[in-house]
Design a protein around this nucleic acid. Structure first.
Lengths: 332, 332
DNA sequence: TACAAACTTGCAACCGGTTGCAATCGGCAA
DNA sequence: TTGCCGATTGCAACCGGTTGCAAGTTTGTA
């Protein structure tokens, strides 16, 4: 069926070692042998079996990519960036779709069976312990969009969610809103909790401001919409920090139902700055998260870990900034 | 480092074969041996190396998933469904992000190096020859969302795009539009061409109807918006069949710029029925493509091919239907 | 109790490569 | 021509499993 080392060796009239060496970087082969082998390989359409070689080299170039954000459009960008960045470095993404699972055991076992060289946990909702499980099983891991910590147990690349909460609070204050609310993601998501904490901490210094908060059932359009509809049925705040752009878009849809104009009647500020937020029909004021840099950095870090598996855990935190669009009233 | 068959065998006091057998379905092991082995495996935290075993069994359970639709939100759903469906059947998706590449050679070589058991080309834009390249290289392949054909060279699962074009044309006619247009995806995309053909063929029987057409640069919001802005700068038609929901959403955004109400001032019908089309703020009349069934069927077909690699190529074409929402005027 | 059939088990070869080691080769200076 | 040294090459063992085969063990039946 498929053509192997042995076939090429036979045709080229050399040993199997010679063939192996012409296909491995920096091995010792004479120009003559190399050309004989290359000719034979071309004739037979040979390409080395990466999996077989991984047996002896201990490297598969397979990278596990684990996520659970399949209902947030931001994931399109995340996923595009990740797969490209990995490919550019000669690595191969092996996907794990977590869906509703929150226990790492299955993913860990599976990725170990496939001998991935490293794993990337791409999720802002999973706790540090999730990524830690990979580390404990001997799989080098980077938690992208993970909870930032001063002394992380595993590599974390992302943003400071607490600081983002503060930033959102400051922004609402600066625009003169007096009754503000937090509409966060699911209550068990670390990012939702951290953003909540920052938001509340910042406002704790302003006892004159009325603060409310609630958590949506998911980071999704539907959840954001449902939650905002619920809020509008009672007495809503003047402005909301929605813990994610997709929640914001859902909330905007709820406002539209009630004939309310975002920015004028009720303020909304999101977080992420996904592509859709720039659409004219959405035009969402939001906190920009530097997705591209975060992902590039994550993949760079993975590459570093391949060279140095015991590398000391590190947190790479990127700054965010407010992007002014149309869903908050202007600063005075 | 990692614990192997040999370690378990040593601890359990049996041969390596015995250990291998307890971990392979349907092999002959006594209950006593099995329990000894399982105990030892548990103590050592052993799990078999899937890649090593693939060497002898010839099966990796790795499935190449190749796509280039990373800017269309529909891909979120496609990707979610695919990864889940594969996982449920014990298969592992190995991703190839084609980005701008249109030549199969690289992907084929790469997936062969990793000995994938099969490949799924998930793209409505790539020509049949792309998938054919996998077939020719001995990799079983399914082209999902591929061009339907009466005698396909490879397995195709999807919809009849020509018929969808017809359906769109009929729908516009039924609503009394007299000047209609096709706003398609990129001109080199098979789906854009097929939908165009069906649309035109159907209208060829109606010489009194004025027809126009154009192709957007990509299946993306921006491309749809730009194209519709261009159309609005001249004399637009009364209604458009946009060759994809994301083009439609872009087009709707352009209409909004001009203060035009979809459904009232200009009609829009899309294709796909992605989640976003249901959003109240979008509320797009569209042709529903049964994504979930298509993907389930594709994965089922992959499973069949694993059993029977030489299976005769088959086209599985699913019917579409119009979903009535708010962007076409009602039928009289 | 004896014997055949049915199960279990370990040995050894193999899957497709890699790599340490020792032998061989080629080139150059003496 | 000889001797020496570094570059090249093949052998053989190994990576972590699987599997055909033959020997050994049970089990069932007469």
């Amino acid at each position: 069926m498929s053509v192997t080392l042995k076939d090429v060796a036979a045709l080229a009239g050399v040993s199997r070692s010679a063939v192996s060496r012409t296909f491995t970087e920096g091995a010792s082969v004479s120009a003559k042998t190399r050309s004989k082998v290359e000719k034979a390989a071309r004739e037979l359409g040979y390409s080395p079996n990466a999996l077989a070689s991984s047996l002896t080299t201990g490297r598969t170039k397979l990278i596990g990519l684990i996520s659970n954000n399949f209902h947030n459009p931001i994931f399109l960008e995340v996923f595009d960036q990740f797969t490209r960045a990995l490919q550019e470095r000669g690595l191969r993404p092996l996907i794990v779709n977590l869906t509703d699972e929150t226990e790492p055991a299955n993913s860990v076992r599976m990725l170990r069976q496939y001998s991935v060289d490293a794993a990337i946990v791409a999720s802002s909702t999973l706790p540090p312990s999730f990524a830690k499980a990979f580390h404990d099983a001997g799989v080098p891991v980077v938690h992208t969009f993970g909870r930032s910590a001063t002394s992380p147990e595993v590599h974390v690349v992302g943003i400071d969610n607490v600081e983002c909460g503060r930033m959102a609070a400051r922004e609402l204050l600066a625009r003169g809103y007096r009754r503000v609310g937090y509409l966060g993601g699911p209550e068990d998501a670390t990012s939702a909790l951290d953003r909540y904490r920052g938001f509340m901490e910042e406002l704790a210094d302003h006892p004159d401001i009325e603060v409310s908060h609630c958590f949506a059932g998911a980071y999704s359009f539907e959840a954001g919409r449902a939650e905002m509809l619920r809020l509008l049925a009672n007495t809503p705040s003047e402005a909301y920090f929605c813990g994610d752009d997709i929640l914001s878009v859902g909330a905007l849809s709820a406002l539209a139902d009630h004939g309310l104009k975002p920015g004028q009647d009720i303020g909304i500020i999101g977080l992420n700055d996904m592509e859709m937020s720039r659409w004219e029909s959405v035009n969402l004021t939001t906190i920009h998260q530097p997705i591209k840099q975060i992902i590039t950095s994550s993949v760079d870090l993975v590459v570093e870990m391949l060279k140095e598996p015991q590398r000391y855990p590190e947190a790479r935190i990127f700054p965010c900034r407010v992007i002014e669009r149309g869903t908050l009233r202007p600063r005075p």
